Simulated assay, not measured.
Amino acid sequence: MMTIDVREAYRRALDDFGALVHRITPEQWQNRTPCVDWDVRALVNHVVGENLWAPELLAGRTAADVGDAFDGDLLGDDPLKAFDTSAAAAVQAASDEGALTRVTHLSFGDVPGEEYVTEVFADALIHTWDLARAIGADERLDPELVEACAAWFAGAETGYRQAGVIGEQQPVPSDTDAQTRLLASWGRRG
């Protein structure tokens, strides 16, 4: 269960990710990230792709309806503009009347829009840490967003792990802070 409005959490997570995107220097686009096989450019491209999918899925379209429109390089010659434009569209789509109650058709089945927005919020939050780590920025995540994500992920972790979309749970001491525990549950080593 989310401890704050999921639309607000999603907007804030994308804002934090975007702030880091704007700090990427030309030589950092090739830096490795904690995400296996992704450099910084691939990570940002992934988030832009998710942002582009959000308006489509929240409008009730299916993956078949959209096809391969968001495959490949979505950043082009202006990655900052690509991110900013996609994030604004995603946040707007999540805020639209009825978006949270509308059926969203995902690859694994139909879910309410609220569940989908929660999933993309969590992904944006975790990838904010990934990007910060990759470019040597401050890795501290918004504590309120960490709390909200952890509350939701406690019920979703098993399904994510069984689907193979997150890494193995990392061991952490019992007195570890909330952010480190959350990252460990997503398979990240803090």
Rank of each mutant, 00 (worst) to 15 (best):
D77P: 00
D77I: 02
D77Y: 01
D78S: 10
P79Q: 11
L80M: 08
K81H: 14
K81A: 15
A82V: 03
A82R: 01
D84G: 00
D84Q: 06
S86T: 06
S86Q: 02
A90G: 02
V91W: 04
A93G: 06
A93W: 08
A93V: 05
A93I: 01
A94L: 03
A94G: 12
S95C: 13
S95P: 00
G98C: 02
G98Q: 05
A99P: 07
T101H: 10
T101M: 06
R102S: 11
V103M: 10
V103G: 04
V103A: 15
T104V: 15
T104K: 00
H105K: 13
H105C: 11
L106G: 10
L106R: 13
S107K: 13
S107W: 11
S107N: 12
F108W: 13
F108L: 12
D110N: 14
V111M: 10
V111E: 09
G113F: 09
G113S: 11
G113N: 06
G113A: 09
E114S: 14
E115N: 08
Y116K: 05
Y116E: 06
V117Y: 02
V117W: 02
T118M: 10
T118Q: 14
E119N: 13
E119I: 00
V120L: 11
V120Y: 04
V120E: 07
V120A: 03
D123P: 01
A124Q: 05
L125E: 02
I126Q: 01
H127E: 11
T128G: 07
W129H: 12
W129R: 02
D130V: 01
A132G: 07
A132S: 11
A132Q: 03
R133Y: 10
A134S: 12
A134Q: 06
A134N: 04
I135H: 04
I135T: 07
I135V: 10
I135R: 08
G136L: 11
A137E: 15
A137H: 08
A137K: 06
E139H: 03
E139Y: 05
E139S: 08
R140V: 12
L141Y: 01
P143A: 12
V146S: 02
V146H: 05
V146T: 02
E147L: 10
A148G: 15
A148F: 00
A150C: 03
A150Q: 12
A150W: 00
A150M: 07
A151C: 07
A151T: 14
W152C: 09
W152E: 14
W152I: 07
W152N: 14
W152T: 11
A154T: 15
A154W: 07
A156C: 01
A156M: 05
A156E: 11
T158S: 13
Y160I: 08
Q162E: 14
Q162H: 12
A163K: 09
G164V: 05
I166N: 02
E168H: 10
E168W: 03
E168C: 01
Q169L: 15
Q170F: 06
P171M: 09
P171D: 14
P171N: 13
P171E: 14
P171Q: 14
P173K: 13
P173A: 15
S174R: 14
S174H: 12
D175C: 04
T176G: 09
T176M: 10
T176A: 15
T176P: 05
